[in-house]
């Protein structure tokens, strides 16, 4: 049997998390499933569940000026519906809108999404495209870690017990930017990503971001593809070449596994389409 604590303040939460056997509840949409599994298998349950969803420190949203910041407690539903988020970080709003169902979006948070470390986490790809750096607190202090380094393997992170993600410092691409998130799932809604892609383009193509998710241990920026775009002339040929290079990167990293017959053309298309839409979005604004 687990005890349950709803800390009233961040210091209280960090003290609680420092106890052995403590586990963060950051929404519960993944955690409650794993607890259910543990109960069915007769496995040991966490000693203490620490519900951090009511901490105001984790609800920060700053999207103006240099210090853009997203609190780890923001839910997907909030990010899907909030007008400022839709305006300033559409790539994240779009990703949020495609997570699970309305019910799951209501409670699932971007903190839990990252800490859970699923390779298919939609929020992760968008956050990587926004160059997110996680702010992580424990009783010992605060550390900062780029998201791309936080996830080490599927469902494995560098988070140690006692640590809590407070939020993410983000660097959106220079405005105006076209930002697009696309995903391929087994059905349109309530689907786990088979592939996802976050793309951001600024008008000068000086800081393009291309993040491919769900087919690597964790979402990653495709640096070669970004370099190709930087030197290129915007248009269908460039987007197609970028798509082919993205697919090439996938087979280079993952080898020619059985799913590649499907994934290579799918990655090519999803990349080209996301870039084309990001560019069209930018054109529409001018």
């Amino acid at each position: 049997m687990s005890r349950f604590l709803t800390p009233a303040s961040l210091p209280e939460a960090l003290d609680a998390l420092a106890q052995p056997g403590a586990k963060v509840l950051a929404g519960g949409t993944d955690l409650m499933i794993s607890l259910r599994q543990a109960r069915m298998n007769g496995d040991e349950l966490p000693e203490l569940l620490v519900d951090i969803t009511r901490l105001p420190e984790l609800q920060r949203l700053e999207l103006e000026g240099p210090g853009c910041y997203l609190g780890a407690g923001l839910t997907f539903r909030f990010l899907d519906e909030n007008p400022d988020a839709r305006q300033r970080v559409p790539v994240l709003s779009q990703a949020a809108s495609m997570v699970g169902s309305m019910q799951v979006r209501q409670t699932g948070t971007i903190g839990g999404n990252v800490a859970n470390g699923s390779p298919a986490a939609d929020g992760m790809s968008a956050l990587v495209a926004l160059d997110a750096v996680a702010e992580i607190a424990s009783r010992e202090g605060v550390r900062h870690c780029p998201l791309s380094e936080l996830i080490t393997a599927p469902n494995k992170t560098t988070l140690t017990s006692g640590e809590l993600i407070l939020g993410y410092a983000i660097t959106p691409p220079p405005a105006p930017a076209g930002q697009v998130f696309l995903k391929v799932g087994r059905r349109h809604e309530v689907a786990v990503s088979r592939l996802n892609l976050a793309a951001c383009l600024d008008r000068d193509l000086s800081d393009p971001r291309v993040v491919l998710g769900s087919c690597f241990p964790s979402p990653r920026r495709l640096v070669d593809v970004e370099e190709l775009i930087k030197g290129g002339k915007p248009g269908p040929e460039l987007w197609q070449a970028a798509g082919e290079m993205a697919a090439g990167h996938f087979t280079y990293v993952c080898g020619w596994r059985s799913s590649a017959t499907y994934k290579v053309p799918a990655i090519t298309r999803i990349t080209a389409r996301a870039l084309q839409r990001a560019w069209a979005g930018l054109e529409a604004r001018s």
């Binding site: 349950f4 709803t6 519960g28 949409t29 409650m32 499933i33 569940l49 169902s101 019910q103 409670t107």
Partner: peptide
């Protein structure tokens, strides 16, 4: 039991949630 089907949906402060994915104490 894992948040796919929505048969357990209830309103928590007026918002739909899957009650199978919600710890009872979250409703406190």
């Amino acid at each position: 039991g894992v948040g796919e089907c929505g048969a357990c949906t209830v309103l928590l402060d007026g918002k739909a949630v899957d009650s199978c994915l919600t710890a009872a104490w979250q409703a406190a």
